[in-house]
Computed example of a mutant assay.
Amino acid sequence: MTSVTQQPARYDCRADFAEELAKLARTDDRIVAVCNDSVGSSNLVGFRDEFPDRLINVGIAEQDMVGVAAGLANAGFVPFVSAAAPFLTGRAMEQIKADIAYTGRHVVLCGQSPGIAYGELGPTHHSIEDLSWMRAVSGLEIIVPADPSETRAAVRYAASSGRPVYLRVPRFKVPTVTPDGAPFEPGRATCLAEGGDVTLIAVGTMVSRALDAAGLLSADGISARVLNMAFVEPIDEAAVIAAARETGAVVTVEEGLVSGGLGAAVAKLVAEHHPVPVRMLGVPGFAPTGSADFLLDHFGLHAEGIRDAARQALGQVRR
């Protein structure tokens, strides 16, 4: 009889986002949701039904959506702005910059289905630039949770932070990777695997794949450290610098552009404090049309691709 390896259960983080938001709203009447005709895709049907007077649907008008949220925050509410990531960040960039970040309004910008999750809809719907764009905006915290429990922790943190936050909410399903009791704090990464030869730094949907890559490297006798960098801004500078010093090679993995996002943030720190070989995995430019799985494979964003990048980085290490 042929044995079949059981795959870990996978979960839709959008459901956890919506459930945690409704849970918080039951005890905090300041929390409201603002969306752009995206009630269904944001999993906010239950929120709308339970709090019909606390969901504002502006229609397909993203600039208005962010402006309305800024006004609500100015009046003492805590708005969660929920929309497809490419349209939230691309169409409303000026309002995000001027009305939210510059004024320091406590607004939570929730980019739904980011990265290449809308694969078959093509480059107009790929949200590969959002991390780069949002990192360029001063005063905006950026959170990319890796699994359901971290998504819930991100919603709780964002609701209480008192600061502008951009929260990425993944569309396609991911396994649980966060250990019980793991802290969730700005500027603090979670080490999911110890290693001394190379460090894999990943965010969001790529974290579980980095762990799989660490397993492949282990089979080759290579010890890989795996860091889940849920806060891209503020990033855990100490963890990045320690990884460079202690392992001598770094690979970053993100479901987005390699220019300006996680990889750029890590490479800057490494170059300034302890230069070592860095390989940045992600999307190099406009992505073609195809399923999310096809696109991830196309760009080598799988365990084997991460393993190969780690080998390449190790090949550049001066021994």
Rank of each mutant, 00 (worst) to 15 (best):
I60P: 04
A85M: 05
L21A: 13
A92S: 15
P8H: 08
T176W: 01
S138L: 13
V39M: 06
D197W: 06
V45H: 09
T2V: 12
D220E: 15
P288V: 02
Q312C: 03
A136Y: 03
G139P: 10
E62R: 09
D16N: 06
A117S: 15
A154K: 04
R311D: 00
V270E: 07
D130S: 04
C35W: 01
N228H: 13
R307P: 05
A22H: 00
V232L: 14
Q63D: 05
T5H: 11
V68S: 03
S132V: 00
A61W: 07
H126N: 03
V203D: 01
N36K: 00
E185L: 13
V155P: 03
R14C: 05
L227P: 11
T124S: 15
D49C: 03
G215S: 12
A70L: 04
D29Y: 01
A214R: 10
L24T: 05
L167R: 04
L55S: 09
P164T: 05
E237W: 00
A15G: 12
T205R: 12
V226I: 10
P277E: 08
V34W: 04
F77R: 14
G67K: 02
F172V: 12
A189T: 11
P183M: 07
A303C: 12
D236L: 07
V250A: 08
P284F: 10
L167N: 08
E185I: 03
A73R: 02
Y102H: 14
T151E: 15
G195R: 06
D53G: 03
T103L: 14
H106Q: 14
A136V: 02
C110S: 03
A242H: 13
T103D: 07
M280W: 00
L295K: 08
A267D: 12
E255D: 15
G248H: 12
V203G: 00
V250N: 05
I142K: 02
T205Q: 12
G67P: 07
V107R: 06
S127M: 02
G305F: 10
L301R: 09
G248W: 07
A264T: 15
V78L: 08
V177C: 01
I306Q: 09
T5Y: 00
R105V: 01
A154R: 05
P277V: 08
A249S: 14
L216A: 12
K97M: 10
H298D: 03
R48D: 05
K97W: 10
A313D: 12
S82T: 15
S132K: 10
E237I: 04
G59L: 09
D130V: 02
P79V: 06
S42W: 00
G261Q: 03
I116Y: 09
R171W: 04
D99H: 06
L262A: 02
H273D: 13
D180L: 11
K23Q: 15
A213M: 10
R105T: 11
I31K: 02
N57A: 10
M1K: 11
M280Q: 13
G315D: 11
A83K: 00
